[in-house]
Simulated scan of single mutants.
Amino acid sequence: MESRELQHVEHGFGPVWDTDSRVLVLGSMPSPKSREAAFYYMHPRNRFWPVMAALFDEPVPDATAEARRDFALRHRIALWDVIASCDIEGASDSSIRNAVPNDLAPIIRASRIGRVFTTGGKAAQLYRRLCAPVLADAGFDTPMTPLPSTSPANARMSLARLVEAYRPVAEACVAAGCRES
C-alpha cells in the first residue's frame, strides 16, 4: 500500500442550496473524487445518493452533478461541508489537520434551514468545535444531528442500516413540509 502525505486542500466548490432549503447536510471535506467532479458524494462507492433515493422512494439520481443538485433542491436539502480548507491525506477524515471552517451563517440566514445533519464522526466533531459557536454568536440555534458516514470506508454499515440512520433527514423534511407528494 502506497504511503501518502498530508497535503493542503481547498474545498474548491460552493454549497448547493436555495432560499427554500430546509435541511443542511454537511460532510467534512470532499473526497478527491468529489473535488475532481466538483460535487458532493461523487465517489462511485459512496452510498449517500442511494440512501437519499431510498429515503424519498425514488431512483438513484444519475451520476451527474446536475441530476444530484436537482434531487437535493427538489427535496429542499442543502449540501455543503464543514471545512473550507485543511491538510488531509487522501480522503482520510482521521488525518484532517488545520481545518478552516466554512461560514454557514449566510446560507442559514438566507434560507429556511431549520436542521443540520453531519455525515460522519469527524464532520460532527468539527461542526461542534468550529461551526456551532460561530452560529450561536450569530444568533442561530439550529439543531444538529450526527449521522454515520456513507463512505465506502464505513463498510460496517450496510445500506439498509444507513437508510435507517438517515431517516431523520426525511422526517425533518416532512416536518418542514418540504417533501413532494
Results as ranks from 00 to 15, higher is better:
Arg4Met: 15
Gln7Pro: 08
Gln7Val: 14
His8Val: 10
Gly12Phe: 00
Phe13Leu: 01
Pro15Ile: 05
Pro15Asn: 14
Val16Asp: 06
Val16Pro: 07
Val25Arg: 13
Ser28Arg: 06
Ser28Pro: 02
Ser28Gln: 09
Pro30Val: 01
Arg35Met: 01
Arg35Ile: 01
Ala37Asp: 12
Pro44Ala: 05
Arg47Ala: 13
Arg47Gly: 06
Phe48Leu: 10
Trp49Glu: 07
Pro50Gly: 02
Pro50Cys: 00
Val51Cys: 06
Phe56Cys: 09
Asp57Ile: 11
Asp57Asn: 14
Asp57Gly: 12
Pro61Trp: 03
Thr64Lys: 02
Ala65Trp: 04
Arg74Leu: 07
Ile77Glu: 04
Ile77Ser: 04
Leu79Phe: 15
Leu79Met: 15
Ala84Arg: 15
Cys86Phe: 03
Ile88Leu: 06
Ile88Phe: 04
Asp93Tyr: 00
Ile96Pro: 03
Asn98His: 14
Pro101Glu: 07
Leu104Asp: 07
Arg109Gln: 10
Arg109Phe: 05
Ser111Met: 11
Ile113Asp: 09
Ile113Glu: 07
Val116Leu: 09
Val116Ser: 08
Phe117Glu: 02
Gly120Glu: 02
Gly120Val: 01
Gly121Phe: 04
Lys122Asp: 05
Leu126Gly: 04
Leu126Cys: 04
Tyr127Met: 03
Pro133Glu: 02
Leu135Val: 05
Ala136Ser: 12
Ala138Glu: 13
Thr142Asp: 02
Ala155Asn: 12
Arg156Pro: 02
Met157Ala: 12
Leu159Phe: 10
Val163Glu: 06
Glu171Leu: 15
Ala172Leu: 09
Cys173Gln: 14
Cys173Lys: 11
Cys173Thr: 13
Val174Trp: 14
Ala175Ile: 03
Glu180Gln: 15
Ser181Cys: 11
